[in-house]
Simulated assay, not measured.
Amino acid sequence: MKQPKKLTREQKECLSAHYLNCKDWMLVEETEFYYRIINKNTKAIKSVDKFRRVRRRKRDVGYSGN
């Protein structure tokens, strides 16, 4: 297996969209549609979809509701 690499900002945003803590993961391989990542502690390998993103609602972005 190749040496795992640090995540870029785009990759970190993708991991957070999958509800994963980016501090615990490193990139093993990038394919056309997936990132293969490895957990730093458990060494578990996981594939996540590159194009999944979380939608933000108004109340998530400083909406006061007044």
Results as ranks from 00 to 15, higher is better:
residue 1 M to G: 14
residue 3 Q to W: 06
residue 3 Q to F: 14
residue 4 P to F: 03
residue 4 P to S: 03
residue 6 K to Y: 04
residue 6 K to L: 15
residue 7 L to F: 12
residue 7 L to E: 06
residue 8 T to R: 08
residue 8 T to V: 11
residue 8 T to H: 04
residue 8 T to E: 07
residue 8 T to S: 13
residue 9 R to D: 13
residue 10 E to S: 10
residue 12 K to T: 13
residue 12 K to S: 14
residue 12 K to F: 06
residue 12 K to R: 15
residue 13 E to Y: 12
residue 14 C to H: 05
residue 14 C to Y: 07
residue 14 C to T: 15
residue 15 L to R: 08
residue 15 L to P: 02
residue 15 L to Q: 09
residue 16 S to K: 15
residue 16 S to E: 15
residue 17 A to I: 10
residue 17 A to K: 08
residue 18 H to E: 14
residue 20 L to R: 07
residue 20 L to H: 08
residue 20 L to M: 13
residue 20 L to S: 03
residue 21 N to C: 07
residue 21 N to L: 05
residue 22 C to Y: 13
residue 22 C to G: 00
residue 22 C to L: 04
residue 22 C to H: 12
residue 24 D to N: 14
residue 24 D to M: 14
residue 24 D to E: 15
residue 24 D to P: 05
residue 25 W to I: 07
residue 25 W to M: 12
residue 26 M to R: 14
residue 27 L to V: 02
residue 28 V to Q: 06
residue 29 E to A: 01
residue 29 E to R: 05
residue 30 E to W: 00
residue 30 E to S: 07
residue 31 T to F: 02
residue 32 E to Y: 01
residue 32 E to C: 00
residue 32 E to D: 01
residue 33 F to Y: 02
residue 33 F to W: 01
residue 34 Y to C: 03
residue 34 Y to H: 06
residue 34 Y to E: 13
residue 34 Y to T: 05
residue 34 Y to A: 01
residue 35 Y to I: 00
residue 35 Y to S: 00
residue 35 Y to L: 13
residue 36 R to A: 00
residue 36 R to C: 01
residue 37 I to R: 05
residue 38 I to F: 02
residue 39 N to F: 02
residue 39 N to Q: 10
residue 40 K to V: 03
residue 41 N to W: 01
residue 41 N to F: 12
residue 41 N to S: 11
residue 41 N to Y: 07
residue 42 T to E: 07
residue 42 T to W: 05
residue 43 K to G: 00
residue 43 K to R: 11
residue 43 K to E: 11
residue 43 K to P: 00
residue 43 K to L: 13
residue 44 A to Q: 13
residue 44 A to S: 05
residue 44 A to R: 07
residue 45 I to H: 08
residue 45 I to N: 01
residue 46 K to Y: 06
residue 46 K to H: 06
residue 46 K to T: 08
residue 46 K to E: 14
residue 46 K to W: 03
residue 47 S to V: 06
residue 48 V to F: 10
residue 48 V to R: 12
residue 50 K to P: 11
residue 50 K to W: 13
residue 50 K to E: 07
residue 50 K to M: 09
residue 50 K to S: 09
residue 50 K to L: 11
residue 51 F to W: 15
residue 52 R to L: 15
residue 52 R to N: 09
residue 52 R to V: 15
residue 53 R to P: 01
residue 55 R to T: 10
residue 55 R to D: 11
residue 56 R to W: 10
residue 58 K to L: 12
residue 58 K to Q: 06
residue 58 K to H: 03
residue 59 R to H: 09
residue 59 R to E: 09
residue 59 R to M: 05
residue 60 D to T: 07
residue 61 V to I: 14
residue 61 V to S: 03
residue 61 V to L: 15
residue 62 G to T: 03
residue 62 G to P: 10
residue 63 Y to S: 04
residue 63 Y to D: 14
residue 64 S to D: 10
residue 65 G to Y: 08
residue 66 N to K: 12
residue 66 N to Q: 08
